[in-house]
Amino acid sequence: MAAFTEFLQGIDHEAHRDRTEQIFNWITEKHPKLETEIKWNQPMFTDHGTFIIGFSVSKKHLSVAPEHVAIQYVEEDIQKAGYDYTKEIIRIPWNREVDYELLEKIIDFNIWDKANCTTFWRK
């Protein structure tokens, strides 16, 4: 997770930084084979050179970006969690609990669905 150190240090709000670090640590523990990278100034987890999930921080929420196909796959779960979302991102408000089961379902789906993917993004 050393790749994320500078990104985390750049989060001014201490509670937001701590929560983001907790999520990154959780992903690293659950999926130790995933690689950590910073691309386009955003922390990302990849598998065999293909994108699995990325994050960005805003004032009101943590954005989770798993690609459109994964959002479609878990859309009902996102709605049940009560998170706002678009075709490309899920917004987890800082004042709400993190639905780790949802994150795990997204990551597991992307690892499975992109097992034979040879490009960074889906085509």
Rank of each mutant, 00 (worst) to 15 (best):
T20G: 01
W112N: 11
E14G: 05
L102K: 04
D47V: 11
S56N: 02
H13E: 02
K123W: 09
G10V: 00
P93R: 08
E29Q: 10
K87H: 01
Y100H: 05
Q22Y: 06
I52R: 10
A81H: 11
I106D: 03
V57I: 00
Y83Q: 10
S63T: 07
K59N: 05
D18S: 08
K33I: 07
F55K: 03
K87S: 03
Y85V: 10
W121P: 04
I23H: 00
G82S: 10
T28G: 02
T28I: 00
K87N: 01
V74A: 12
H61K: 11
K33F: 13
A2M: 07
W26R: 05
F45A: 08
P32N: 03
M44F: 04
A15G: 04
K39N: 01
W26D: 06
H13K: 09
D77G: 12
R17V: 01
K39H: 06
G49M: 14
A81T: 07
N25M: 10
R91S: 14
E76N: 14
D12S: 14
F120N: 02
Q79S: 12
A65L: 14
R17S: 01
T20P: 03
K60C: 12
M1D: 08
L34I: 12
I27F: 10
I78C: 09
K80N: 15
N41F: 05
T86E: 02
I38C: 00
I38N: 01
N110H: 07
Y73R: 06
D77C: 15
L103I: 03
Y100T: 04
E14L: 08
I92A: 15
F120W: 09
W112R: 12
D12Y: 07
V57N: 01
A70H: 08
H16R: 14
Q22V: 14
L8P: 05
F7M: 11
A15I: 05
M44H: 08
Q9P: 05
I78M: 10
K33W: 07
Y85F: 15
T36Q: 15
H68V: 12
Y73H: 09
I11T: 06
A2C: 06
E88Q: 15
I23K: 00
I107M: 00
E29H: 10
T46M: 12
A3W: 02
G10M: 00
L34W: 11
V98C: 13
D84Y: 13
T50S: 15
A81F: 13
A3D: 07
E35M: 12
T5I: 08
I23F: 00
Y85P: 07
E67S: 11
K105F: 01
D99P: 15
E76F: 12
E35D: 14
P43V: 14
T28L: 02
R19M: 08
E76P: 01
I38H: 02
K123P: 09
Q72W: 09
G82I: 07
T46F: 13
